[in-house]
């Protein structure tokens, strides 16, 4: 599995942290870094510097599309956490979160709000204000779901790596990780559904 964090010299984890000096990148700073890389590797740039590159005998190791793919994966909190968990050795394929009444109610509630917005349609008066309010609420909730992973980063990694634990313990803890991932995924999904409202 390709480690996208490596493309940008980042430490795998729920946040964007530099491998060399532990500096935390904001989304904006990460984008600036990505743009700087793209000025080097973008195919359009090659048309001009082709000759120079050939002379120096430098082979392009990673393509613009690969950087773009890695950037898209890491800039989004959900796909970043998924990528990190998978790198750490957790299989998320076909897994499901445990039934949880609280989570279920939360989802029903969000669904209701979405339906309400949808039935109005985006042309309705005051739609934008309501939209942004819902958006802010859901974004905050997603961020706190992300914060759990930040707070438990070392614990999560040790749970997923350590083979010395008994099977039962691992099961138990990886289910907790999975549940929190489910929470993050839920808010991310709601935010996406929100965007699709026309």
């Amino acid at each position: 599995m390709t480690d996208f964090f490596k493309f940008f010299n980042l430490t795998p984890g729920p946040l964007l942290v530099s491998q060399s000096n532990c500096q935390l990148f904001t989304d904006k700073a990460f984008k600036v870094m990505y743009h700087q890389i793209q000025t080097q590797v973008h195919p359009d740039q090659m048309a001009v510097s082709q000759r120079a590159t050939q002379d120096a005998g430098v082979a392009q190791e990673l393509t613009s599309a690969q950087y773009s793919q890695a950037y898209q994966c890491l800039i989004d909190p959900l796909s970043r956490v998924r990528h990190w968990l998978e790198l750490t050795g957790m299989s998320l394929e076909g897994q499901s979160t445990q039934a949880n009444m609280e989570l279920f109610e939360e989802q029903m509630q969000a669904q209701e709000i979405l339906e309400g917005l949808k039935s109005q349609g985006s042309a309705a008066a005051g739609f934008d204000e309501q939209y942004w309010q819902v958006h802010r609420t859901m974004k905050d909730k997603m961020n706190s779901a992300l914060q759990w992973f930040v707070d438990h980063q070392t614990a999560v990694e040790s749970v997923l790596c350590q083979s010395s634990l008994t099977n039962e313990q691992v099961e138990l803890d990886s289910q907790t990780v999975l549940n929190h991932f489910g929470l993050l995924a839920m808010y991310s999904r709601i935010l996406n559904q929100l965007k699709d409202i026309r």
Binding site: Q38, H42, D44, Q45, A47, V48
Partner: peptide, 17 residues
């Protein structure tokens, strides 16, 4: 501008994502 960049005449033009 983009065309001139693509044929190698305008290195200054920005990269487009």
């Amino acid at each position: 501008r983009l065309c001139r960049k693509l044929v190698g005449e305008d290195a200054q033009a920005g990269v487009l994502l």
